[in-house]
Write a protein that binds this DNA or RNA. Structure first.
Lengths: 360, 360
DNA sequence: GTTAGCACTCACTGCTAACGAGTGCTAACG
DNA sequence: CGTTAGCACTCGTTAGCAGTGAGTGCTAAC
């Protein structure tokens, strides 16, 4: 067994920009990350040596650990403490070493039975998905609802409430419903309102939401003017109502799970993270323009300082290659990557299927 | 000055079930609560004595403090520490001593300019109101949206998405919009759908939402059957869609503010509170069946153990005596009652006015 | 009724010593 | 030459201990 591990010179750089690690170094790194993920305590050479399947003395392990530290894969909180993985170490682990666990039968059951439930509101689905994810992982989940950007108008309705206001309702081809209260001019009567709605429906059906506003003014405005007086005010209200439309909704769940992690027993640290979570715009920024599939951002790889001690795993759920939204999971860098990644894979795919049915 | 304060025997019980306190005791209790609210540290006799307007030596104060403790208004964390108010002490303070501060000009400006903004979605208003409240107080705000219970149906729309599903939209007299996706039988065509919608609109307009479902089956079902085949399935879908309707929406803001309070530097304590905040149903229970006006629940007066170290101030906002919803503010028992109560008073009233305009 | 004086309590601070987990280095081993 | 045993060293952690100071309760005097 011992011959397997040759002690190669270590500064050779591989194609990923990483030094090529010997098989033994990989094994040790793997052991350290696994241990640390479990215990949250610096890992010493002795505990690695005592592991089953490791045939080396603590001294040998120490030598390798010193090398791995020099290469930047490990860190030492202080002299005379064990080693913990650095961001680079986690990165290597995630890229090359992590064994994706099969999602355990119980968890799989829970996900499946969740998605089997019939839910009649998209918001409900997303909210519950966020909840189930945070429950199963004990981390904090962040789910971004489906983007309405690519959606198109299915139907438009205007329901008068009283003399001066009405509710404008927009239904998209995906079944998503947006509504705004708008004010209508005082000398505007029912029959005219009906005309307006009819024109809007015939002219705007099928138009993508993001082009709705411009279309409203260019093509429809003219024609509308022919039939209806005082339409400027209505147009104005509608325009305003539509412009604020593309607000994403962010669903958070299990933020308090952060408090259970030993690395966050310091209240101040948690505070900065919580504040970050509260700022929806920043959150959105971290989520948008992510490549599809599962992305792992470890520690300092994250753009925002507040979560430099966290890892953020995101999985965009998509259908026919079109991205619908994003599931995110925030935890300490010391995350159970093996379990979480595969779980999110399952969840995002199931979610895509479920929402896909919706969209058809 | 010293003659003013007579030292009456102290076990006399007043009409509120409280011992009648001498003027001096009231003054001391008031001073202690004020001090503790500011400093979060046990208050000693010396610091009270040194205050302006107090003409007594520490020893005298100590005697009174001992009496107040015996009466249950004060507590001692340990011998040789100062006193802190007990729940009963806060209660007396809130009921008899607190001086409601005028809302300061800046804050008032912020509230007013917030409510002057035109918002076109009720959710937006409520969400922002929660935010402004938590920002201004540095506590955690919880806002319950207007109850839909008393609302009635204004209009009903059914927008087909494809062969097998449609979006049912309900608009209430208050401009609130609810929507659900329902499935429709495969052999069901457009003209029939229109008939259904027409019948539903004529029959159900003005019906209170909570009676919608029963009405649907008793009165409408029969008539509907006359015109339309296969209506059981539609009815069923509709019934289901309506039944889950009355879900309250809870808006939280500033949960992380909890972390700034020194009494919550202990992570475990915060955890239980956060968990409590996460459980919407429990939250709702704490909010419903509250008398209107401003309610203060101090420490152990709260039903749930998790917030025995917190105070919960609620203000229901109502119009024409009809309760619309509730604003809540959660902080440590050591809350700045004087400031917060008057602020919530302003906010709830302004909110009622704003939403009142909506409802008309 | 009020207050000065005093002994007592107890959290908190700073200091030292002992402990132990873990390291780096060196020399010996196969 | 890779591996390993041995050993000195580092450094965080813990326990013990004396000193400090804020605060109390009690008593006796004003």
């Amino acid at each position: 067994m011992q011959q397997i591990f040759k002690h190669y010179p270590i500064q050779v750089i591989g194609q990923e920009g990483f030094a090529v690690l010997t098989e033994r170094q990989r094994m040790i790194l793997n052991a350290i990350v696994d241990d640390y993920i479990r215990s949250a305590e610096p890992v010493g050479s002795r505990s690695i040596s005592k592991r089953g399947g490791v045939g080396f003395s603590p001294a040998t392990i120490r030598n390798e650990m010193a090398d791995l530290e020099e290469l930047g894969f490990l860190e030492q909180p202080h002299t005379s403490a064990g080693r913990i993985p650095s961001t680079k170490g986690y990165r290597y682990y995630v890229d090359h070493l992590v064994k994706l666990e099969e999602v355990n039968e119980g968890d799989l059951q829970r996900v499946r039975s969740f998605f089997a439930k019939k839910m009649n509101q998209m918001e409900q689905i997303i909210q519950h998905a966020a909840m189930i994810l945070s429950n199963m992982t004990n981390y904090t989940s962040i789910v971004l609802g489906p983007e309405t950007f690519d959606n198109s108008l299915k139907a438009f309705q205007l329901v008068p409430l009283n003399d001066s206001s009405a509710v404008a309702i927009i239904v998209t081809n995906t079944g998503h419903v947006e509504n705004r209260t708008i004010s209508i001019p005082p000398d505007f009567d029912m029959s005219e309102l009906e005309k307006v709605v009819n024109i809007l429906n015939t002219k705007l059906a099928g138009v993508p939401l993001h082009r709705l506003q411009s279309k409203l003014f260019t093509e429809v405005g003219e024609e509308l003017g022919r039939y209806v007086d005082h339409c400027e005010m209505i147009m104005d209200s509608l325009g305003k109502a539509l412009s604020s439309e593309s607000e994403h909704r962010v669903f958070l769940s299990g933020a308090s799970n952060m408090l259970t992690q030993p690395e966050f027993k310091d209240v101040d640290k948690v505070k900065t993270i919580m504040d970050w979570l509260d700022e929806t715009p920043v959150l959105m920024k971290a989520f948008t323009s992510l490549p599809s599939g599962i992305q792992v951002r470890i520690g300092s790889e994250n753009d925002h300082d507040a979560i430099h001690t966290c890892s953020l795993i995101t999985a965009s759920y998509s259908i026919d290659g079109k991205s619908l939204g994003t599931i995110g999971l925030l935890g300490p860098t010391r995350m159970d990557y093996g379990k979480v990644i595969s779980l999110m894979d399952v969840l995002s795919k199931d979610m895509a299927v479920l929402l896909g049915r919706w969209y058809k």
